[in-house]
């Protein structure tokens, strides 16, 4: 009998049968794990399965490689305070969907867990948008695709950085990038070395476009479903809130 107890964050829950669900939980010491949960319609468990819920998880299975069963106890629900805030709710869904899709099953160390936990706590702050972009950059690094945003790929200087190369993920200074600026991604102010504080929704949108490029071409390049739908919807909502897009469209593609 395999058995462990760990702290985790619920990433997704797919109904399985009438009263059960297969859930995905990102744990501190056991990586992202799947397991079956019984009685999902009971009062006790219903709120626990919302994405972002911090839980004390107990997983047991006959053998280490079988699906296993989860028993969960809710420590803190991340979704409840955000239900009335569409952008933050979309950010929560995006972060959970990205973690669920990007982190292979049984992979993901404590850093990945702590990063997501910190982001969920930051979603109630004023700089939640910037925190979200920084979390995606950290996720890229954890997945083996680090961005080098502290010095210019051309001259090595760490001042006046303005662009990022979509090929290498390295920062480029304004002077060095000027001739190629059409092909480079803008580097938002809050990601430049030495910058502090918030950058507004425009900066967040630039940051999302930056990370979206690397998520699509690096992390999800070989995933059949591509970047999760929730991530696209989140970026669209930010665009819409800035007046860049008139209508929000949703695909039927699975997250």
């Amino acid at each position: 009998m395999e058995l462990w107890q760990d702290q985790g964050i619920v990433l997704s829950a797919r109904p399985h049968g009438e009263n059960g669900a297969v859930i995905s939980v990102l744990t501190v010491h056991n990586g992202r794990r799947l397991g079956y949960v019984r009685g999902i319609h009971t009062q006790k468990i219903r709120g626990t399965l919302e994405p972002g819920s911090l839980v004390d998880a107990r997983w047991q299975a006959r053998t280490a490689d079988s699906l296993g069963t989860f028993s969960l106890e809710l420590s803190r629900g991340a979704a409840a305070p955000l239900l009335g805030e569409p952008l933050k709710l979309a950010a929560l869904q995006s972060a959970c969907a990205l973690s669920d899709a990007a982190i292979p099953e049984r992979e993901g160390g404590e850093g990945v867990f702590q990063g997501l936990k910190a982001l969920l706590e930051m979603l109630d702050s004023d700089i939640w948008g910037e925190a979200y972009v920084m979390w995606e950059i950290a996720l890229l690094r954890e997945m083996g695709f680090p961005l080098a945003l502290d010095r210019c790929a051309g001259g090595g200087e760490s001042t006046d950085l303005a662009y990022v190369s979509p090929k290498t993920g390295r920062a480029v200074s304004k002077a060095a990038g000027e001739p190629y600026k059409e092909r480079l991604l803008p580097l938002p102010g809050f990601l430049r070395p030495g910058s502090v504080g918030e950058d507004g929704k425009e900066g967040v949108l630039e940051g999302l476009k930056l990370t979206a490029c690397f998520l699509e071409h690096w992390v999800f390049a070989h995933h059949t479903r591509g970047v999760p739908e929730f991530r696209r919807v989140f970026q669209q909502k930010i665009e819409k809130s800035l007046g860049f897009s008139d209508a929000l469209t949703l695909n039927n593609a699975h997250g």
Binding site: S12, R14, P15, A97, P228, E229, F230, V233, L250, N251, N252, A253, H254, G255
Partner: peptide, 12 residues
């Protein structure tokens, strides 16, 4: 309700 996980979009 909308659910990308279950493939329910606005058209449904």
């Amino acid at each position: 309700v909308l659910s990308a996980l279950d493939g329910i979009g606005p058209e449904q």
